[in-house]
Design a binder for these strands. Structure first.
Lengths: 103, 103
DNA sequence: ACTGAATATGAATATATGTGCATATATTGC
DNA sequence: GCAATATATGCACATATATTCATATTCAGT
């Protein structure tokens, strides 16, 4: 009588963190931004132009991702360069993109 | 000059599937339902009672999960038993719960 | 201090989403 | 066919979310 590896109980805090993390990955715009940043560090303008999105749209979404510590930034002159800051979440995103494409 | 493993292009269809998949995992109620079902097959009423949720709430969320083929069901009398139908997505959920709890 | 360039922020709006109520549908036993 | 039980569905409503516009902030160069 084998059993599945038991999942730990889901406390409120874990539930919140997990749902927020997946919420970050549930919007097409944020997925595209993360997908881009996975390849290279980019400024807000770079992203805006590459994805044909308004500057404010990109800025708002980056704030969301920054609050969850999925991205980090570095200032260089008047530009701000963003890059990936959570390898685990990026792994999850890559896995799921791969899964969607090959199945 | 090493390069990162190149991600494939994100076509519209992939983007949609991926965002929908994460949307399924972005709601606390759905996470709790999947977490329960990971441990055992359960009827709508079982879930409703275990999580203190209205029957219609559970039914609505199960429809969502069923449409994405994350769960499957089997009828037994007037009851309908639901169980997990996507191991990959459950892996992703488990990984992320674990990550949230230990970091 | 002033200007131009890049980014961030707040308010407004349209749309999406989660839940509950009431009701419909489906199955079983009589 | 009828009653009882379990589940599904449609509608309404409150809340959350994504985007846009207008404006504020920050920094570099002069």
């Amino acid at each position: 009588m084998d059993e599945l590896p038991k999942l730990e109980e889901l406390d409120e805090e874990t539930l919140f963190i997990v749902s927020q993390t997946f919420k970050a990955l549930s919007d097409p715009t944020r997925i595209r931004i993360l997908h881009l940043l996975y390849q290279e560090e980019l400024s807000v303008n770079n992203i805006s132009e590459a994805l044909h999105l308004r500057q404010s749209t990109v800025s708002h979404q980056l704030r969301f991702l920054k609050n969850l510590r999925l991205v980090k930034y570095r200032r260089e002159g008047t530009s701000i360069y963003y890059s990936i800051d959570d390898e685990h979440v990026m792994d999850v995103l890559k896995q799921t993109i791969d899964h969607a494409q090959h199945h």
